[in-house]
């Protein structure tokens, strides 16, 4: 293990995750107004109709896959009786379908970004960078899955990448695990770390406002002008005489 390994598998991950967390906090504080999907459906809807759901459902499945693959230790799945072979068949089967969906969707979205006039005009440099890093990450990730599926894979990522990833959160980083993981996984992990670092500054922040609260709130929202103004709490000392209305 040398300095480069420590840099790549200890320093970069912590810097990236710190930017990810602090960046989101800061962006939310500073830029609530810019926190949006920046939907481009107004300009074009036929390509989006296919590209966006394919990509989104794909990437959400991929996300679930990552949570399982990186978050759940091998010993746990084996404890519930899921054999190594069965696990991989499952992971590669579902992973491939989700991955292909994501890729096709992404291809349609990028094609649309480039070829539809108004959508292209509305694409910022920020978007282009985001798409580049996102695409690279997905491509590297897919190539690992494909190589794993055709049996070229020398290492089991659940013995290397996953424990390394978890070790970061235990604050007991084990960079040596990553050095054994193979170039494909290394590239995928690195590009993902770069993606996390730029995430809070791109339109991807919309992921964190996935509107799950919609299921529980009443349909019509009422807000009082005098109790709360916009997102600002009522300043101290301005309580209504008599303790307010309700």
């Amino acid at each position: 293990m040398n300095a480069v390994d420590i840099l790549l598998w200890v320093v970069v991950p912590y810097v990236s995750l710190a930017i990810f967390v602090v960046g989101h906090y800061w962006r939310y504080k500073y830029d609530k107004f810019g926190w949006t999907t920046r939907s481009s459906q107004l300009y074009e809807r036929r390509l989006l109709r296919w590209g966006s759901p394919l990509f989104h459902f794909g990437i959400l499945f991929v996300l679930v896959g990552h949570v399982m693959g990186l978050g759940i230790p091998k010993s746990w799945t084996e404890a519930v009786g899921l054999s190594e072979g069965a696990y991989h068949a499952l992971a590669i089967g579902v992973g491939a379908i989700a991955g292909i969906g994501t890729l096709v969707g992404l291809a349609i979205l990028i094609y649309r970004r480039r070829t539809v006039g108004p959508v292209f005009s509305a694409t910022t440099r920020n978007d282009k960078l985001m798409y580049l890093v996102l695409t690279l990450t997905i491509l590297f990730g897919m190539s690992n899955t494909v190589l794993g599926a055709v049996g070229h894979e020398g290492v089991d990522y659940r013995d290397t990448v996953s424990p390394w990833f978890r070790s970061i959160f235990y604050f007991n980083p084990q960079p040596e695990l990553m050095t054994e993981a193979g170039l494909g996984f290394q590239l995928h992990a690195l590009s993902a770390l770069v993606l996390f670092a730029i995430w809070p500054f791109t339109r991807l922040v919309h992921v964190f406002s996935a509107p799950l609260g919609y299921f529980t709130r009443p349909y019509i929202v009422y807000r009082s002008r005098d109790r709360q103004l916009g997102n600002r709490p009522t300043p101290r000392g301005w309580d209504r005489v008599g303790g307010g209305r309700r």
Binding site: T36, L42, S209, V221, R223, D226
Partner: peptide
Amino acid sequence: IYKREEDGIVLVDQDRCRGWR
């Protein structure tokens, strides 16, 4: 999007809109 309790005017909170359209 909320309705003001006092006068029923319907407004969009620009800071909370996330562009789900």
